[in-house]
């Protein structure tokens, strides 16, 4: 009994020794400030003056905040649009580019371009392409589809701005998740496919019974990261929809923009943390559901 315990302890120690190098740095530089920020949601603080306890007042204030509600709604819509689209697109691209295709290396590199290129540069291009009066997209709508001038879509304002943001983000991050999927595809044993071929399985069946289940942890990772990154959308909104002073209107504002604004423009760090808590809880719930889903499969 005593011996068993010590073996378990020894095992724990070995495990901890693996984690320690990363965890110590992580705990000191990230975890501590985050826990502090968490607590801030229940306080009022401007970063300099003494902290005062606020109880739940920050959260109460949220319920009547027009901008917060708009930001919440926009963020959720953006996530619902972006997560599945990006996942499907990147998986499809990864599968295609994992096959023996001529110029595969070039195609892979090209798919990675949007991700590495600076956001300032690529958003400028997008804004030109979708320019409401001079852009080629609206030009085609006007000349080919005879959409009247006044009815040409305003891609960066009103209801369409979220659509533009979703399309942009799928395009920009597709290559990124494709790379993750590509790495995941390497882990699938060739024998599985060979066996399936012998059984006369077609491409779709192979995907359904081998690729998809085998990519389970990769997909879990991709979906979780996608969800988190979508909830954290910020600079895309600013660059695509920001007005003259970088401000976002009610139809394009997103949670992290609001967090940023409350923290660094208004210096209401407590209130900003309260918004972040809402963001965190949403990500948490979504992640937990996915976690359950992944467990169930196993």
């Amino acid at each position: 009994m005593a011996k068993g315990l010590s073996r378990q302890k020894k095992r724990d120690l070995v495990a901890y020794s693996f984690i320690a190098p990363n965890f110590i740095g992580f705990a000191v530089f990230t975890l501590v400030p985050i826990v502090f920020a968490f607590a801030l949601a229940f306080f009022n603080w401007d970063g300099s003056n003494p902290i005062t306890f606020a109880g739940l007042s920050n959260f109460k204030q949220l319920t009547g905040d027009v901008f917060f509600k708009a930001a919440l709604k926009n963020t959720i819509i953006y996530c619902i649009g972006t997560v599945p689209l990006t996942m499907i697109a990147s998986l499809a691209l990864a599968i295609v580019l994992n096959q023996k295709v001529v110029g595969r290396g070039i195609f892979r590199t090209l798919s990675f371009f949007p991700y590495v290129a600076s956001l300032v540069a690529v958003t400028s291009v997008w804004k030109m392409l979708f320019h409401p009066s001079k852009g080629p997209i609206n030009n085609i709508l006007y000349t080919v589809f005879h959409v009247p001038m006044e009815q040409l879509p305003q891609w960066f304002t009103g209801g369409l701005v979220l659509v533009s943001m979703i399309l942009f983000s799928v395009w920009k991050y597709m290559g990124y998740y494709m790379v993750i999927y590509l790495a995941g595809l390497q882990g699938i044993s060739a024998e599985l496919y060979e066996a399936a071929s012998l059984d006369g399985a077609n491409t779709w069946q192979k995907f359904q019974y081998i690729t998809w289940p085998q990519l389970r942890s990769t997909t879990f990772f991709v979906v979780v990261m996608l969800t988190i990154n979508c909830f954290k959308v910020y600079d895309i909104a600013i660059m695509l929809a920001g007005g003259g002073s970088g401000e976002l209107t009610i139809s394009s504002t997103v949670l992290v923009y609001y967090i940023y604004q409350k923290a660094f423009i208004d210096w209401k760090l407590g209130y900003s943390s309260a918004v972040a808590m809402v963001l965190f809880l949403m990500v948490f719930v979504v992640t937990m559901i996915q976690f359950r889903g992944q467990k169930k499969y196993q």
């Binding site: 530089f29 990230t30 985050i34 920020a37």
Partner: peptide
Amino acid sequence: IATIAMPWQVYMVPQ
């Protein structure tokens, strides 16, 4: 996982 979900802007100042 929890820390990934926190936008950096939230804990930038304490950090």
